[in-house]
């Protein structure tokens, strides 16, 4: 895979990875972004701020691709990224896409569906981030999530981490 140009920033890499001009998800751009998140000192914090903004794009394709980038980072950028998505500072940006108090009435159904699927997947797969569970439960309590999605990308979290043998 070609490595990203050193002049690129997280922002320019994200713009490429989420461009509405991309015909399909461009995994080279997406992985370049993930690599940069892993390299930069404050990569997880900065990327979550950029992603929180990008996934609220009024352009459906851009928003959906931003959510795909978030998923890719959760898979590839480890615990420090998980800690960032596990903060309300980021989770609130997802909540805004669903709640009618914010962007919920304007968000495309496809975006809302993907956000709910992701939160559902994370609350099961990232139990060490309790705020994700709290947010998901509140969405259900408020009736914004009627039932758990049937979709779950099992490739994310194939099984719970094995217990250490010497526990």
């Amino acid at each position: 895979m070609a490595s990203a140009d050193e002049n690129e920033t997280l922002e320019t890499l994200l713009n490429k990875a989420t461009s509405p001009m991309n015909r399909d998800e461009d995994w080279e751009y997406i992985m370049n972004f993930c690599d940069r998140v892993n390299i930069e000192l404050e990569g997880p914090e900065i990327s979550c701020r950029l992603l929180g903004h990008k996934m609220q794009s009024p352009q459906e394709r851009e928003a959906l691709q931003a959510l795909t980038v978030v998923e890719a980072c959760v898979k590839n950028c480890g615990e420090s990224f998980h800690r960032q998505v596990g903060k309300f500072r980021f989770l609130n940006e997802m909540i805004k896409l669903i709640s009618p108090k914010y962007l919920g009435t304007k968000s495309p159904e496809s975006v809302k569906k993907k956000v709910i699927e992701m939160l559902y997947s994370w609350q099961a797969g990232l139990p060490q981030e309790p705020k994700i569970i709290e947010a998901y439960q509140m969405l259900k309590k408020q009736g914004l999530v009627k039932e758990d999605p049937v979709y779950m990308d099992k490739a994310y979290f194939p099984s719970p981490a094995p217990r250490p043998k010497n526990a």
Binding site: F88, R89, I95, I98, S99, K101, Y102, K131, Q142
Partner: peptide
């Protein structure tokens, strides 16, 4: 408070 503690204290879920 340290930065992390302060950030944690200010990290709240939005009312829906």
């Amino acid at each position: 408070l340290g930065f992390d503690e302060e950030e944690e204290r200010d990290d709240h879920m939005l009312p829906m």
